[in-house]
Simulated assay, not measured.
Amino acid sequence: MNIFTTHIGEEFHELSPLLQKVHTGHSRMEGCIAVKRGGKLANIICNIFGFPRHNLQTDLAVECDHNAESMVWVRYFDGLKMSSRFISGNNCLVEKLGPLSMRFKTRVNEGALEYHFLGTRLFGIPMPAFLCPQIKAREQEKNGYYSFNVSVSMFLIGFVLSYGGELSVK
């Protein structure tokens, strides 16, 4: 058992075998994905938080470690390192990414994994809902590859960032 399997419970067995493998123990994924950024204000936000640059052909390597206390995903976008740590919190997963703590509830839908965004804290302070980023994230197995998409938007700013594509699991 690890934090992810504990959080998702019996639904874990409804995930595709590839997603089960990715969310168990240690795994590595590699491939070429698309990273898109929004306008000028979105670019400033992305730069402040160290998000990857706009590049429709970005090399991505991901190292995933799952244990009973946390899951750690380290992403290398064209060499730029972006690490996040997931912990359990109040019946949800909390992703810690620098000063941000984002709460998600996961759901399995036809073998795919969907992350439903619940809220954000910045430096430990809850952000009002209208200031929180809106995050959509989905993982699925597609033709033997790990396929995913993450999209972020914000009130008054609109589209901020998206990244996604297909990765081979090593």
Results as ranks from 00 to 15, higher is better:
N2E: 01
I3E: 02
I3T: 15
I3S: 13
F4M: 08
H7Q: 09
H7L: 07
I8E: 11
I8N: 12
G9C: 09
G9H: 07
E10S: 15
E11Y: 07
P17W: 11
Q20M: 04
T24F: 06
H26C: 08
C32V: 14
C32A: 08
V35F: 10
K36W: 03
K36P: 00
G38L: 14
G39T: 08
G39S: 12
N43P: 10
N43E: 13
I44G: 05
I48F: 06
I48Y: 01
F49Y: 04
G50C: 10
F51E: 06
R53P: 02
R53W: 02
T58W: 03
T58D: 02
T58E: 03
T58V: 05
D59T: 15
A61S: 05
A61L: 07
C64L: 12
D65Q: 10
W73Y: 13
W73G: 09
W73L: 14
V74K: 15
R75S: 04
Y76I: 00
F77V: 06
K81D: 01
K81Q: 14
M82T: 02
S83I: 00
S83E: 15
S83Q: 15
S84N: 14
S84K: 08
R85S: 10
F86Y: 14
G89V: 11
G89H: 15
G89N: 09
N90Y: 00
N90A: 14
V94I: 14
V94N: 03
E95D: 13
K96D: 02
K96R: 12
L97Q: 11
L97M: 14
G98W: 08
P99A: 04
L100H: 02
S101C: 08
S101M: 12
S101A: 14
M102R: 03
F104C: 08
K105R: 13
T106S: 10
R107N: 06
V108C: 11
V108W: 07
N109S: 10
N109F: 04
G111P: 04
E114Y: 06
Y115Q: 05
Y115A: 08
F117H: 10
F117S: 07
L122I: 12
L122K: 01
L122G: 00
I125T: 04
I125M: 04
P126I: 06
P126N: 06
P126V: 07
P126S: 07
M127Q: 13
P128L: 13
A129V: 10
P133N: 06
P133K: 03
P133D: 05
I135P: 07
A137Y: 00
A137E: 09
E139F: 11
N143P: 03
N143H: 12
N143M: 05
Y145C: 15
Y146R: 07
S147K: 12
F148E: 10
F148Q: 00
F148P: 03
N149C: 15
N149M: 14
V152Q: 04
V152P: 02
S153L: 00
S153T: 12
M154C: 06
M154L: 15
F155C: 13
F155I: 00
F155E: 05
I157K: 05
F159M: 08
L161A: 04
L161T: 02
Y163D: 02
G165Y: 05
L167F: 10
S168H: 07
V169E: 01
